[in-house]
Simulated scan of single mutants.
Amino acid sequence: GPGGSPGGLQKRHARVDVKYDRRELQRRLDVEKWIDGRLEELYRGREADMPDEVNIDELLELESEEERSRKIQGLLKSCTNPTENFVQELLVKLRGLHK
Rank of each mutant, 00 (worst) to 15 (best):
V16R: 07
G7A: 12
L9V: 10
K33T: 08
D57A: 11
Y43C: 08
R46G: 07
R28V: 03
H13P: 00
R95F: 00
L94Q: 09
L9N: 08
Q73I: 03
R70K: 14
K99N: 07
K19W: 00
D17K: 14
I56V: 15
K71D: 00
E40I: 11
R12L: 12
L94D: 08
H13V: 03
P2C: 03
K11F: 11
I56W: 02
S78T: 13
E40S: 14
L60W: 05
K77T: 12
G96A: 04
S69M: 13
K71V: 00
Q88K: 15
N85C: 01
E61D: 14
P51I: 05
I56D: 02
T80C: 03
H98S: 15
D52K: 15
L76M: 15
E58Y: 13
L91D: 09
L94H: 11
G37K: 13
N55R: 14
L60A: 10
K93L: 05
S64Q: 08
E66Y: 09
D30H: 04
E65Y: 12
H98D: 09
G96P: 00
R28A: 03
L59N: 06
S78N: 15
L76S: 06
Q88I: 11
R27L: 10
W34I: 08
Q10H: 10
L91K: 10
E53T: 13
C79G: 04
R27W: 01
L76H: 07
G74I: 00
R15V: 10
R38I: 06
K93N: 01
I72E: 01
L75S: 05
W34K: 05
Q26M: 09
N81W: 02
I72S: 01
N85V: 07
E63P: 14
K99W: 00
R28L: 09
R68F: 01
A14I: 11
F86T: 02
T80N: 06
D57M: 11
N81I: 00
E53Q: 13
L90V: 06
L90Q: 07
P6H: 02
E41V: 01
K99E: 07
Q88T: 13
E53Y: 10
E67H: 14
Q26G: 02
Q10T: 05
D21A: 01
L60Q: 13
L60H: 06
G1I: 03
L75V: 02
V54W: 02
L76W: 07
E40A: 15
E63L: 12
Q10R: 13
V31M: 05
P51F: 07
R70N: 12
G74L: 01
Q88R: 15
D49Y: 06
Q10V: 07
